[in-house]
């Protein structure tokens, strides 16, 4: 069931990614002028935080299989997931302070939709990891961490596309 959900979410984000690339191709100058104002370094820091969270989730599964307590690694994943959301809060606050919002232009509409939709998945992922912390059967940990790795996977594709890639 979780694999079906993961495939569905990947399909939705895939459509977003292709739509973003096509919109860029239609207006490369406008997109790249807007993209110059994204926080590339902050986005890179967010990437490091999220992949470290993903590693911690993988460690939790390894520990469970080895008969060790997966709890500390799951807490590490949750804390880093919350830290990732903190970087998004800083990012959004900076944009709003500079008068940039979802209605500014097509680039910023897609920026807020894609990063915001991803952030919602991070929130859901933190909740799921919190649930499996208290119900830490091997099956639950496999299922919950699979969702978290999907969230991680989407970000490592979203970050270069939205923050770095230009013609």
């Amino acid at each position: 069931m979780m694999w079906i959900l993961i495939l569905g979410e990947l399909g939705v984000f895939g459509a977003f990614f292709v739509g973003f690339a096509v919109a860029h191709a239609l207006d490369p100058t406008g997109f790249e002028a807007s993209q110059a104002r994204v926080g590339r370094v902050l986005g890179g820091i967010a990437t490091v935080v999220l992949v470290t969270s993903g590693w911690s989730a993988a460690v939790a599964l390894q520990r469970k299989r080895a008969g060790l307590d997966p709890g500390p690694a799951l807490i590490g994943s949750m804390v880093l997931g919350l830290a990732f959301l903190g970087t998004k809060a800083v990012d959004y606050a900076d944009k709003f302070a500079h008068g940039i919002d979802i209605d500014t232009n097509t680039f910023w509409t897609l920026y807020f939709l894609m990063t915001g939709f991803h952030a919602m998945h991070v929130v859901l992922g933190v909740v799921i990891i919190g649930i499996i912390y208290f119900n830490d059967s091997l099956e639950n940990i496999e299922t919950g961490t699979a969702f978290w790795h999907m969230v991680d996977l989407i970000w490592v594709l979203l970050y270069p596309l939205v923050y770095l890639l230009r013609s």
Partner: peptide
């Protein structure tokens, strides 16, 4: 494998940022 992958992911993230240019346009 997860630890090795994590280290490579950190290195590749730095490489991607360098390729994309942290402040360049």
């Amino acid at each position: 494998p997860p630890a090795r992958a994590w280290l490579v992911l950190l290195a590749l993230t730095g490489m991607a940022m360098w390729t994309g240019g942290p402040n360049g346009s």
